[in-house]
């Protein structure tokens, strides 16, 4: 390798070091905040089945209400659709209306 090549390499290395120093700030080395933010997100990403079951057991009422509501909607829709299929649509819609009024609808 020639002297010129060596000088160029040294000069490039010096230039890169100066550029690195320009971009470097002491606060960059503190990764506590970054670490905390990332690790907290990995907790929510990797929730196990037992942890989700734990939520249901610790907060049973909202989950039960949500489940009950979905069941009621499913029953109503099933009734309407099956009644419509045998040509009894008029009465079925009345029944559906009654059901919704019981649930606070209409």
């Amino acid at each position: 390798m020639s002297d010129h090549d060596n000088t160029t390499k040294a000069s490039d290395a010096e230039f890169d070091r100066a550029l690195s120093a320009l971009f470097a700030h002491p606060e960059d080395e503190d990764v506590a905040e970054l670490s905390r933010a990332v690790l907290s997100q990995t907790v929510t990403v990797n929730r196990t089945r037992h942890e989700v079951q734990g939520d249901v057991l610790s907060e049973p009422l909202p989950w039960a209400l949500g489940f009950g509501g979905l069941m009621a909607i499913g029953v109503a829709l099933g009734y309407v659709l099956s009644s419509s299929a045998i040509g009894d649509g008029f009465l079925a819609w009345f029944a559906f209306g009654d059901l919704l009024s019981v649930m606070g609808g209409f």
């Binding site: 971009f23 470097a24 960059d28 080395e29 990764v31 970054l34 670490s35 990332v38 690790l39 990995t42």
Partner: peptide, 14 residues
């Protein structure tokens, strides 16, 4: 993961 962040976090953020 914490170790990886300590190793490469400053450079990647920069």
């Amino acid at each position: 993961l914490a170790r990886l962040i300590a190793m490469y976090g400053p450079g990647i953020r920069r």
